[in-house]
């Protein structure tokens, strides 16, 4: 609720240097204290992503832990368990249509999709999205003849 309020009404807050990171640290602390299952799921997802070849952690500019492939961020997870993943446009549409993910909480319909990580049951679906995002992040470099439907939107 607080996160949604800040994202919707206090977007300027994100442009204050370090403010999003401090806010996300508070969110993560809140999650660690009062939503233990979500926190455990966040840690498990992070641990999994770190095992993917070529993937490194990065700092998401609006707060949260980012996941990058060859230096390009393809996903990030906020302190409240909101996972955002970048897919190909076609895959993003399919993921939203099938209910596997939601449209991005800020950008709306785009290559980015959002997924709420609330507990252990959500981990498999989150990992699937992350694998998909990781593949998508690698593909343009490997396949320069990607068709239009395999492009990113925004």
């Amino acid at each position: 609720m607080i996160f949604a309020f800040v994202v919707r009404h206090l977007r300027w807050f994100a442009h204050i240097p370090l403010a999003p990171q401090v806010f996300d640290a508070l969110l993560l602390t809140w999650t660690a204290l009062f939503r233990r299952q979500t926190f455990a799921a966040i840690m498990e997802v992070e641990a999994f992503v770190r095992t993917l070849p070529g993937v490194s952690l990065c700092a998401h500019r609006f707060g949260g832990t980012g996941f990058a492939c060859d230096g390009r961020e393809f996903a990030h997870i906020h302190g409240n368990g909101l996972l955002d993943v970048r897919l190909f446009a076609e895959e993003a549409r399919a993921a939203v249509a099938s209910g596997r993910a939601n449209v991005h909480h800020v950008l709306g319909a785009s290559s980015w999709v959002s997924f709420w990580l609330r507990g252990a049951n959500d981990i498999p679906a989150a990992l699937e999205l992350l694998k998909q995002g990781n593949c998508a992040a690698r593909q343009p470099a490997q396949d320069s003849n990607a068709t239009k439907s395999r492009e990113f939107l925004r």
Partner: peptide, 21 residues
């Protein structure tokens, strides 16, 4: 305290990521 904790935690979380490389 709240500001101090949140800022130290933010720094530690950022450092945890940045200092991997």
């Amino acid at each position: 305290s709240p500001l101090l904790y949140a800022s130290i935690a933010a720094g530690a979380l950022l450092g945890r990521i940045w200092f991997r490389t």
